[in-house]
Amino acid sequence: MISPPEKDSLSEPVTDHLRTDYPLFSQTTTVQQTLETVRRTGIDEQVMYFYVVDDDLHLQGVIPTRRLLTAMPETLLGDIMVKRVVAMPDTYTLADACELFIMHRFLAFPVVDKERRVLGTVDVSLFTEEVFNFTEMQNVEDVYQVIGVRLSQVRNASPWQAVRYRFPWLMATLASGITCAVLAMFYQATLAQAIALASFLTLALGLGESVAIQSMSLAVQRLHGQLSSWQTGMNMLRHEVLTSLMLGIGTGSCVILAALALGVTPGLALTMGGSIAAAVTSAGAWGVIVPAILHATRRDPRVAAGPITLALTDISTILLFLHSARVMLSITAA
């Protein structure tokens, strides 16, 4: 039995903690032959998955224990295996393994080399001292909570480590602030032509950031524990863009009415309202795109998504707002 790693050892390679008492089977093996092998070899009761490989041990699929037990005896493993297998690269550390368990909510992962040859397995018992009944969902959730707590202890071991982890993402905010300042200087002549633009620019930025944060928070919640897929990301993006568009139309209409009430010319009022509607829509899109990309690349969207999303939102809002006004003013002057 492998003892759970201490906090300081989570930087160790996962290959130092592999289990090799696991079954590997061929696609042409039947369910009956597999069960006979299991009975004959006396496989550990903690084995949750059976892995299917080719002759060179390349990972081909996985079969959960329940699916194996309920299949007909003459069925081939290749017909019941799950072909899309989430595998753990042999370059991972134990901290990386923690994140993978939390993200996918599986009880075990095969560890593979760069050619996807199976080297061993890692299961949740590596990270927990407690004995859990894996047939009860509540206890399974307890496992992931324990893993998450231990990972957070590593991440937050000291204020200096927390700063090192979080500060690079704040550079996105710093970079966007400088970029926005440069853009404002570039459109200085446009701002000078219509003082109302400067008055409503802060409103445009505030609306964009609010929608971006809302969209990002919802996206992070939806992505938590989900497998990364193109279809999931596109569905989320489509839903959020439509929602943000309606929010943009509503807020843009309010801006138009407010601008007209303050004596702004109808053309400029319509331009500001339209650009704010576009900015709010783009903000909603950024709120989904950024967390989805971070999730797909195994970055923590809870920490990184905020600064990046707000940075992109501010830049796109200023460009849409000021460039639209510049075009409108040039048309009016002509």
Rank of each mutant, 00 (worst) to 15 (best):
V140P: 00
W230I: 03
L57S: 07
V53D: 04
R39L: 13
N133V: 10
L100I: 08
R84V: 15
R39G: 04
R40M: 09
M216G: 09
V154G: 02
D90M: 15
I147T: 14
Q27Y: 01
S228L: 02
V327W: 09
L69V: 07
Q32N: 10
Q161W: 10
F167E: 08
V211P: 00
T271A: 15
Q138K: 12
F106I: 08
I289F: 15
A97F: 00
P307M: 03
Q138S: 09
A87G: 04
G42I: 00
A192D: 03
T34Y: 04
A258W: 03
I276G: 02
I43A: 06
I195R: 11
H58G: 02
A212W: 05
E130G: 06
W230Y: 07
Q27W: 00
F25V: 11
T232L: 15
H104K: 11
L322C: 12
I293N: 07
P307V: 07
P301D: 09
I178W: 10
Q145C: 07
G233M: 06
G273D: 02
L312C: 14
W286Y: 12
S152F: 05
Y92L: 08
A97K: 00
A194F: 07
Q231I: 13
L174M: 04
T65L: 08
E240T: 11
T179Y: 10
T202K: 10
I213R: 04
V53G: 12
V122I: 13
A71L: 09
V52R: 00
T232F: 02
A162R: 12
V52S: 01
F134Q: 06
V154K: 04
Y51Q: 08
A283G: 08
D79C: 09
A196D: 06
I293S: 01
Q193A: 05
F132Q: 12
L294D: 01
F101L: 06
T65P: 01
K114D: 14
D113T: 11
L205P: 09
R67Y: 11
Y187V: 12
T281H: 03
I2C: 07
E99A: 14
P13H: 10
T29V: 08
Y187Q: 07
F50D: 05
S158K: 13
H323F: 15
V122G: 02
H295R: 04
T232Q: 06
L174F: 04
F25K: 01
C180L: 14
M216N: 05
